[in-house]
Write a protein that binds this DNA or RNA. Structure first.
Lengths: 257, 257
DNA sequence: GAGTGGTCTAGACCACGTA
DNA sequence: ACGTGGTCTAGACCACTCG
């Protein structure tokens, strides 16, 4: 069994890209050119290009051409993301730090009362028909969407409070929760990696072949009651996730016999 | 402009999957069935199925049928991954913990002297033609590959030592490095999310539409010299990444004015 | 208008799995 | 033998971008 022809075409292009022969932004030969170069039908060429697109290597601009994808990534620190910060709690560290670098951060806030998705309902320990207040934010840099930050609160806890209003909360939702008698005491962090859902593709203007990291934070009161579940969606082509290791001393305290 | 027909087919199937009508493992209608149901040509049906496959929703078993993908994920703790452990340092915590759960861990080790990939060369601060010793491991559970763990060392530092031999090092490579006078003092952790490269697809037996998280650890001596670069490749459909937050006390020490 | 990619058809032959 | 998906062809019409 020989290698399928579309695989051969894809391999050639992949090699040209990883060797730097076709650098970021370079234009891929047009489909008719590849058809004659390899002596195949258009469908075969398109199968090859689709594969590379789904690997995130190519960006197609309809009517203009197909290009090697550029990627620039910013650092995301999950451990620091949710530490309150003087001055602008809800526009948190990530955005503030980027502003220092001369970029223009912005965000949109949208508030709704919804039946939560299954993964959220489970983490908030809600019953089948319990509702949540969700504050949906899309954070952008220089006008380009960068990540999604959706905070879910059990509706019973926050109804009628500021949290249910779609305005920026200057002192932070954490503070408001505390004033309502539900101070957060600890949190659980999870990150899963998957392909985006269609609504995420739309909100983040994701190209094909762009996976996302989903960082879910569940915050609990001292009594162990979950009071907030934050779903952060980070496009893979725009973020590097960094975190601090435990002190090396910790790692050394089990000497071998 | 109406929605393309293949999009319509994909949306219908996606809805059936997310609503649970087509549960994990359920078989998707065969291509001829979808052709007659929607009155389209085979290519159109295949375009729709390809899209869902690239979203990681479908698993195709050639000759048998197309099915809704199952996923089961294990917890990966990047902060603990590299803490030495009594008994089996190189078969580290991840595998040991899984063994406690009644699963059967195994690993393959392969050692080579190679010109490092660009991302590794950069982190080890190597010159153009410097070589590295790489210890490539694939860790498996119950015979299924689970993740890749490739450790790169500057060849100059470890040539002739145990590290260049393809045997399990009972006391751990970290210990060997220390004996060679290059004790690790601190480390930098980075995680990026991307689609896998073809060799990774092969080594990990990844299905289409499976993104990976790449956890890169760069270890330095007290003098700041990089002595090891570990590239961990974690398939998105098999891992949940978890980590510990800093103490909440830290987060509270900046009271608002 | 010429060139790009996006969608779609109607056929064909093949390898693979199940029975 | 039959049904599954895998590969491939040779056309077609469309919308978009650019000079």
């Amino acid at each position: 069994m020989p290698e399928p022809r579309y695989q051969r075409i894809a391999s050639d292009l992949r090699a040209a890209i990883s060797s730097g022969e076709l650098g970021p932004g370079a234009q891929i030969p047009a489909e008719p050119e590849l058809m004659s170069r390899y002596g195949v039908a258009r469908g075969t060429v398109r199968t090859a290009l689709a594969q590379l697109t789904n690997e995130g290597l190519l960006a197609v601009e309809s009517g203009r051409g197909t290009f090697v994808r550029r990627r620039r990534q910013l650092v995301y620190r999950p451990q620091e993301e949710f530490r309150p910060q003087p001055g602008s709690p809800e526009m948190d560290r990530f955005m503030a730090a980027r502003a220092d670098e001369g970029r223009v951060p912005s965000q949109t806030i949208e508030v709704a009362i919804v039946r939560p998705p299954a993964e959220v309902a489970e983490r908030l320990e809600l019953a089948e028909d319990d509702l949540t207040v969700v504050r949906r934010r899309v954070r952008s840099l220089d006008g380009e969407p960068f990540n999604i930050n959706d905070s879910y609160f059990p509706a019973k806890l926050v109804e009628g409070s500021e949290i249910a209003n779609p305005a920026d909360i200057a002192r932070g939702t954490r503070q408001v929760l505390a004033e309502l008698g539900h101070a957060e005491a600890r949190a659980l962090d999870e990150i899963v990696v998957r392909m985006p859902q269609p609504d995420e593709v739309h909100r983040l203007a994701l190209g094909p072949g762009t996976p996302v990291a989903v960082h879910v934070v569940t915050a609990y009161t001292a009594a162990g009651r979950p009071v907030r579940c934050v779903v952060n969606v980070l496009p893979g082509d725009r973020h590097v996730i960094a975190f601090e290791r435990r002190r090396p001393e910790d790692a050394e305290q089990t000497p071998r016999p």
